[in-house]
Design a binder for these strands. Sequence first.
DNA 1: ATGAAAGCGCTAACAG
DNA 2: CTGTTAGCGCTTTCAT
Lengths: 349, 349
Amino acid sequence: MPEPAPGSRPTLEAVAARAGVSRATVSRVVNGGAGVRQALVEKVREAVEELGYVPNHAARTLVTRRNGAVAVIIAEPEFRVFSDPFFEQQVRGISRELTAHDSQLVLLWVEGPGDYDRIGRYLGGGHVDGALAFSVHDNDELPSIIRRAQVPAVFGGRPGWPGATAGPAVPYVDCDNRGGAREAVRHLLSLGRERVAHIAGPRDQTSAMDRMDGYQDVLLAAGPGLIAQGDFTEESGARAMAELLEQRPDLDAVFAANDLMASGALRVLRERGLRVPEDVALVGFDDMTSIAEATDPPLTTVRQDIEGMGRLMVRLLMRVLNADEAEPGAGSAPGSVITPTELVRRASA
Amino acid sequence: MPEPAPGSRPTLEAVAARAGVSRATVSRVVNGGAGVRQALVEKVREAVEELGYVPNHAARTLVTRRNGAVAVIIAEPEFRVFSDPFFEQQVRGISRELTAHDSQLVLLWVEGPGDYDRIGRYLGGGHVDGALAFSVHDNDELPSIIRRAQVPAVFGGRPGWPGATAGPAVPYVDCDNRGGAREAVRHLLSLGRERVAHIAGPRDQTSAMDRMDGYQDVLLAAGPGLIAQGDFTEESGARAMAELLEQRPDLDAVFAANDLMASGALRVLRERGLRVPEDVALVGFDDMTSIAEATDPPLTTVRQDIEGMGRLMVRLLMRVLNADEAEPGAGSAPGSVITPTELVRRASA
DNA sequence: ATGAAAGCGCTAACAG
DNA sequence: CTGTTAGCGCTTTCAT
C-alpha cells in the first residue's frame, strides 16, 4: 500500500525519473506497453507501483479529446422514474457495461424545462463522450437539445417524436414490442380463446403503440369494443378492464400492454367473480417479476431483457464513438438494435 | 443559434482574436469578468456568443485542479437500493444541490467486493473533487477505501464502523434518529399508553440503534419482552409484532423503527382483531408517504427531510472542499449535521 | 525501441 | 485595467 505524498500526486515525470527512462516510455507502458522492451516495461511498472502513480485524467483528456465519461439523461416528467424497477435495471446494465469500457456514468437529472438549457450547455461543452437518453414521451424536447449539442447519443426505446424517422437516423435500443405482442396474442388464441381484448398503453409512447400494433397484426379485425385505453398504471388497468367488461361481457381473454395494468385488470376480474384463467385468460408485458410473480394467479407475460438493453445502449454508443473517431462526422449509420422478447408462461394464461 | 464549426470547437484564442483582446482578458470575462472594463466585457461576450464558445473543461481542470464533479457512491449489498424511495429522494436532493454548485454527479455503482479496487483507483485518480457515500452497514469496506484515496467525503447517515469515532472525524449528515424516537415514544405516553413496545431495526445500522436508544431514553426500564428485533422489512415487522403479542398480550402501544415494519405490525394487529389505535396505538418512522398514507388507518410517524439531507451532504462537502483549498490538509474539522425530525400525526396514534 | 520536443486549452502570476 | 508569459500533465509525431 504505497502511501502517497500528501498534497500532490506523482506525475509521469516522477515515474520516468524513478525508472530512469523518458516520459514517453512511461506513457507507452501505462497505455498498454506495446513496443517497449520487456525489461523496461517491468522497471516502469515497478516505479508506478512504488510511487502509487495514477494518470491525470484532465491532462489526458486535454490531448486525446476523450474523457471517458458518458452522460445518462434522466428526464422526469412524471412522479416516479427513479424508483421504477424498469429504470433501475436499465441503469444497472448501463453502469456495468460502462465500467467494462472504462467509462464513467455522469448522471444528468432533468427536472423541468428550465433544466434543458443547462443540460444543453453541458452536453455541448464536451464534458462527455456521448449521451444515453430515454425516449419516454413523443413530445420531448430532449432529442433536439441533444442534436444541437452535437454529441453522439443513443436512445433507450424507439423515439417517436415527429421528425424521428426523417433526417439522420437516431440510434436506439428497444425490445421487439410488436413481435412480443403478437406472440402474446397468438398464445391466447392457441388456448382456444376467441374474443381477445387489449388494454393499451399511452398513445404518446411508442412501446405502447407498437404493442397495440402487434395485437392488431394478429387480430386483423379486432371486434368493436375490444380495445380499451390505459396509461400503464395499475389503476388505469382496472378502469380499462371494467370498461371492456361492460362493452364485451363475452370476452374470454385480455392482453394488457404491461404487467401493472394486467394486475389492475386481474383485480377487477376477481372482484366480478370471474376466474383467471378459466373464464378469462390474461397476459401482461414486461415480466416485472415483482408484479408478475406476486399476483394470484401469477401472470403469464412477455419478458424483455432490460438490463441487456442497457448494456446494448452502451455498446452501440461505443461503436458510434469509434466510428466517429475513424471518420469524423461521417454519417456512419450505426443502426439500431431490437432485442427479442420471450413469452413467460405462468398461471394466468 | 450559432452553428459551431463541425469537428472543432473555438478556443479562448479564437475568441480573443475576434474581440481584439488577449486570452487573459477573455478568460477573466468568462470567469465572471471582475476587473475588466465594461466595454471590453461586452465586446468579449459578443465574440463568445458569435463563436459559440464553450470553455474546455479538461484544460481548466488541468490548471485549477478542480473538476466540478462529485462522486455519489452507491453500494449495493442488498437487492433493492435504487428503487428505494428513500434513496431516490436523497439522490434527488444531491442532484439539485450539485447543480446549484455547478458540479456534476458521477455515479459510482458498487456491486461487489471486486468493485472496490476500481472505485478506489477512480477516487484516488483525482477525477472528482469529492465523494458522497451512504453508510448502510457497519462492516462496510467503503470508508477505508475512501480514506485511502484521500478524497474529501461526506457520509449520509452516521457511520458506525469500528474506528468511526476514533481518528479524524468523518463528516456526515443524519437526522435526529434518537430525538425523533424519543418524541414518538413521548407522544404515545401522552396518549395515556403504559406498555409501549418497540420493534427495532437491524443491529448493524446506526439509524436503527439510535432509534432504539431514543426509545430507551424515555422508557428507562422498558419492561421485559417489550422489544422485538426486525430488519426494516414489512415481513420482519409482522413477525416481530406477533412475537411481542405473544410475550406481552397486554401491550397498548408500539413504536416501530420504520414505516415498513409498522405496516407489517399493523397487518398482524388487524389479523388478531386488535383495533388501531383504540387497542394498540402505533407509530412508525420515516414518513415514507407511499406507505404511511396508504395504510388503514394511516400511520402516525416521525418525518425526516430526506431530500434536505441530500442537499446538506453537498453543502457540507463544498465547505470541506473550500476549507481544503484555503489551507490544504488542515484538519479543518468540518463537523457533521444532524437534521431535526417532526412527528406527523395521522390516525394510528 | 527509445527520447526530445511540441503542443492540447486554459489560468494565474507578474509586468506594464 | 490589460497583456505577456509560464506552465498544468499528458500524448504523440519525429528523430535517432
